[in-house]
């Protein structure tokens, strides 16, 4: 492996973390809390696709479409069936929402394990073209797709938030659910849209990343944490901030084990978390201060 190959790998992982972070960002902007079930959504997307292909001999594209649909439904159920009722009952408290989301995370993991089995399955590639060689670097089609789709996703969400009515409402609602409700804004609908979009982005990310290292029912937790760190590191200042955070973590994930061996990235993640949470909890890019 050349150095450049490592960089490519870091960018690819960075794009994956970035997409997870984007999913976090959408829910955070719309509903003001962190949906820890993002990682399991991605796992669901990846694992469900593979399972459909292996078990039912489905072609990759329809399998992926079904997996995305399933994940989106799960995401919507998270909001409608769990988060919203729990938040309504407990008021604004953070702990009940956190415990509720932890329960969702755990449930999706168990559900996936029960339905799809516990072993790690290989991911399915959506690409139909061969590897591309640029100089010394061989770019796998899956990497190319991962990076390309990530960029497109970010661009689309950026345009959506800036130029559409719903996108602008998302921010208005997120600043204060309560105030927005008083103003007569459709808070519930906007929140639901945020969850659905987040589920969509996460499922896509999971499907695209699964070919790299395979996926199993427990992959989701680590992904959840990586995505969360990426969104915290990036900050909520701009739609693109999660991508920057994701890239930084991608570098950590690839280069720390390369230079320091084995599990250095786990320590690196912990260190980054502690540093950012302690000194810069608002992230690298800051928007206005939230009340």
């Amino acid at each position: 492996m050349t150095d450049l190959q490592l960089w490519l790998s870091a960018v690819e992982i960075g794009c994956f973390f970035g997409m997870l972070a984007l999913a976090y960002h959408l829910v955070h902007v719309g509903a003001g809390f962190f949906n820890f079930a993002i990682g399991p959504y991605a796992m669901m997307g990846g694992l469900c696709t593979t399972w459909l292909v292996i078990t039912y001999d489905l072609a990759v594209w329809p399998a992926a479409a079904i997996a995305v649909a399933v994940t989106v439904v799960l995401s919507a159920l998270t909001e409608l069936g769990v988060v919203r009722p729990v938040q309504r009952r407990s008021g604004g408290g953070e702990l009940p929402a956190l415990v509720a989301v932890a329960a969702v995370l755990f449930t999706i993991q168990q559900l996936a394990g029960y339905v799809f089995g516990y072993p790690t399955l290989p991911g399915q590639s959506l690409a139909t073209f061969g590897p591309v060689t640029v100089g010394d670097v061989t770019v796998q089609p899956t990497s190319l797709l991962m990076i390309g789709v990530a960029l497109i996703c970010f661009a689309l969400v950026a345009v959506w938030i800036r130029f559409t009515r719903t996108g602008r409402l998302l921010r208005a609602v997120g600043d204060s659910n309560h105030a927005a409700a008083l103003l007569g804004l459709p808070v519930n609908r906007i929140r639901l849209i945020a969850f659905v979009l987040a589920g969509f982005v996460a499922a896509l990310a999971g499907i695209l990343f699964a070919p790299k290292a395979g996926v199993n029912s427990l992959s989701g937790l680590a992904w959840s944490l990586s995505g969360f760190l990426a969104v915290v590191v990036g900050g909520t200042g701009s739609v693109w901030a999660p991508l920057v955070g994701g890239m930084l973590l991608g570098l950590v994930e690839v280069f720390l084990p390369y230079y320091f061996g084995g599990q250095a990235h786990v320590y690196g993640m912990l260190l980054i978390a502690l540093l950012f949470f302690a000194f810069k909890p608002q992230g690298l890019f800051v928007r206005t201060v939230r009340a």
Binding site: L225, L229, L270, A273, P281
Partner: peptide, 14 residues
Amino acid sequence: GFFLAAVTLLFGMA
């Protein structure tokens, strides 16, 4: 809240 949960989970992994 979420920040504490994330750091302590990472600590468990580390």
